[in-house]
Amino acid sequence: MGTQQSPILSSLPPLPILFSFFLTVYLIAYFLVFRSWSPKIRPEASSCLISLAHGTPAVFFSSFAILSDPSTGFAAPNTRLQNSVLDFSVAYFLMDLLHYLLFFPGDVLFIGHHLATLFVFLTCRYVASRGAFAVLTLLILAEVTSLCQNVWTLANARRRDVEFAAKVYDFLSPPFYVLYSIVRGFVGPCFVYRMCAFYASGAAEGLIPRWVWVSWIVVVMSAISVSIMWISNLWVELYRDRSGKLEKKVT
């Protein structure tokens, strides 16, 4: 018997329509929502808006797609809904990759990150047709901080010329750093360990090509390592900033 999907959310639109959606959101952000912002930060702000349109919905879509499949497992066949959620994220990362290629072609780290992420989604969706449980769980862990991170990023972009933005940035920084540190520094590595143990045991032999799951592990571990370095640097900056403000008050 096949798995039962909710009639309300059995699938998402095809990839071209999803890409058109993110392109439309980006253009609206760039030419309408942030039209009064400095040309230097309008592209980044527009990228944040499409990230907001992707991040939190991706968490809910992925969670539903995983929970609606009773045969969920690291090597289980992808369901129709799981494939649709993968397409949803592929559309977003393609749009954001185009953004970086147009406005920040020298940002090799982010371009490489997006290419590697697209590789994982595309091989899971179109090559292996299995393993969506693992990939979508990783997507949840990556995007669960998206709302907070994008608001924090927008506030950071305007904090030097807008007092309210500075207050939002100062207020959000500690809780955002804590949440990000827990997800990327503890929960993520624990899940990747489970993922490694499963695939290394040979349980997916003959189901998912070895080069596919090995590449997934390499990409994910690299991404987590970069994330940990990034948040560590932010903690150091926050400490220095708060220490400097405290010293000024004392003197």
Score class of each variant (00 low, 15 high):
residue 81 L to A: 01
residue 187 V to G: 00
residue 130 R to Y: 03
residue 69 D to G: 09
residue 158 R to L: 12
residue 115 L to I: 15
residue 169 Y to N: 06
residue 223 A to E: 13
residue 116 A to S: 13
residue 170 D to M: 05
residue 137 T to C: 09
residue 10 S to K: 06
residue 144 V to E: 03
residue 163 E to T: 12
residue 151 V to D: 05
residue 146 S to G: 10
residue 142 A to Y: 13
residue 90 V to D: 01
residue 249 K to R: 14
residue 122 L to W: 04
residue 147 L to F: 15
residue 240 R to S: 13
residue 42 R to H: 04
residue 36 S to I: 04
residue 183 V to R: 05
residue 74 F to E: 12
residue 178 V to C: 04
residue 157 A to N: 14
residue 143 E to T: 08
residue 180 Y to G: 00
residue 158 R to V: 11
residue 135 V to Y: 00
residue 133 F to N: 04
residue 8 I to G: 00
residue 231 I to G: 04
residue 15 L to A: 08
residue 154 L to N: 06
residue 85 V to M: 02
residue 1 M to T: 14
residue 217 I to T: 14
residue 216 W to L: 13
residue 86 L to N: 01
residue 208 I to N: 04
residue 136 L to S: 00
residue 94 L to R: 12
residue 169 Y to M: 10
residue 45 A to C: 13
residue 188 G to C: 05
residue 167 K to H: 08
residue 98 L to R: 10
residue 49 L to K: 00
residue 44 E to Q: 06
residue 21 F to M: 13
residue 80 R to K: 12
residue 15 L to P: 11
residue 21 F to S: 06
residue 100 Y to R: 09
residue 214 V to C: 01
residue 180 Y to T: 05
residue 233 N to V: 04
residue 179 L to Q: 11
residue 99 H to I: 11
residue 183 V to T: 05
residue 105 P to S: 07
residue 115 L to H: 08
residue 9 L to R: 07
residue 50 I to K: 02
residue 50 I to S: 11
residue 231 I to W: 12
residue 25 V to I: 15
residue 72 T to G: 04
residue 162 V to F: 07
residue 100 Y to E: 05
residue 44 E to L: 09
residue 40 K to H: 05
residue 183 V to M: 02
residue 182 I to E: 09
residue 159 R to E: 06
residue 27 L to F: 01
residue 138 L to W: 12
residue 159 R to D: 04
residue 138 L to Y: 06
residue 193 Y to D: 04
